[in-house]
Write a protein that binds this DNA or RNA. Sequence first.
DNA 1: CGGCAAATTGAGGAAAGTCAATCATAGTGG
DNA 2: CCACTATGATTGACTTTCCTCAATTTGCCG
Lengths: 259, 259
Amino acid sequence: MSDQHRIGGNKQSQKPVLTPVSHVACSKCGLGKLCIPASMDAPDVSKLEMIVHKSRPLQSGEFLYRVGDRFADIYAVRSGCFKTFVVDAAGREQVLGFHLPGELLGLEAIYQGINISNAEALGTSSVCRLHYDDVTRLSQQVPELQAHMFRLLSQRISELSAAAADHTADERMAEFLLSLAARFKERGYSSKEFNLAMSRADIANYLRLATETVSRVLARFQKKKLIRVERKLVELLDKDALSRLAGSTNESNTTLGAL
Amino acid sequence: MSDQHRIGGNKQSQKPVLTPVSHVACSKCGLGKLCIPASMDAPDVSKLEMIVHKSRPLQSGEFLYRVGDRFADIYAVRSGCFKTFVVDAAGREQVLGFHLPGELLGLEAIYQGINISNAEALGTSSVCRLHYDDVTRLSQQVPELQAHMFRLLSQRISELSAAAADHTADERMAEFLLSLAARFKERGYSSKEFNLAMSRADIANYLRLATETVSRVLARFQKKKLIRVERKLVELLDKDALSRLAGSTNESNTTLGAL
DNA sequence: CGGCAAATTGAGGAAAGTCAATCATAGTGG
DNA sequence: CCACTATGATTGACTTTCCTCAATTTGCCG
């Protein structure tokens, strides 16, 4: 709850526990359908690829962008994990979301033309960079891309709406774990076992809980045999029970369950 | 916290306390720059007007759309006020936002193609209806409209991000009041005095507080001479103090401040 | 091996929630 | 026209959840 300004200073080597599967994909990103509309045909895909820029990997703690930066690019996570957060006048940090490979970053800056949040790498991570102007220009030519952008923006709205709910610590934690599981699954990783790229403090902040509460809830879940936690590694032992805890709106619906 | 399914059954006659000013505007909507990109020229504006459908006014308690409805339209509030909300598996309602004249509704449904929230009129209200297909089609032809849509979606993301913050009851209430004030001002109404279209219960739910807490906080604010409340009518007596309470990120920035 | 940061665990306190009673207002019907 | 009733708002007393503070413990990296 304090040192959000360190740059670098990695601690844990964060590697996916499980193997990704391949998608129909953007050759540069390797992200597949998550960043490319499924309905786009080959020529359009190659147009999209032309505006995608690979960028160097970021070390843990490095910022992709900061509050106040002029907005020019949006990003797709290639590997690793990012957290986005704001710092209010009182210096308190608020984590707004965690962003896994295939997910977009920077969308909230479009409105004001200035970044209103910070994005920090959690573990070594890399992104694809897209100039926003290129994206809008190409969206004019490729209806599928425009539609995709609308959907992605709408998706983020859905996620944030889901996160807005006033739930207990147990509910929020269950929702969080299931959300991660769903998103890992979508990306071809195991939805049963995964690494938490973020610290307990970040999870706590994101869920509007105290760090200690996160520890306690995880301990309680483990005692109830719902999960197994070992440091960063989490295994979901009883998803059904977790779903019930979460309020069970989490079966068919991929977007619900807080980010 | 219970009877969200009543249709009709108005109670209070909700009238703006103050007079709106005129904007450059869509003739059908009368909404001005809020629903029309400022940069659009006359021919483009008339194209936009062609896809706008005025619809009959809704009575208090009537739903504009419901969870599960197939998504086909987005809406711009013409008059009155709407609340959007979800109901979770346990039957608990969660208010996601209040929507004033000039603001858009239904954006979160784009992603899934199905409405994931309910929109209910608070007091007699009316909307402009836009077929989403028309909007996307026209956005292909009119770059300014596409840009505007991106901005609007991004704006909603900003708003929800701001609402995500973990603040105290006093902070949340101050933010809420200031947000309303800013939005009324933007629309040409007084930012000092306005009517709350929504019940205490709705405010409480939106702010993740108990109804009683909302009452108590408002009473406390009044005792401290920060505001004057009389039923639905609110007058802001000391905006600076409220801003300080809110965390004071609320001067220049129109989008921050919950909702 | 030492030192540091993160995580866990325990004890006590505070903010907000719940339950319950009262008050006020607006709409209803005699 | 006015009493009556229902609904929403307020106020008070008590409870609960989660936070805060503090003390360890654990694991990691030099």
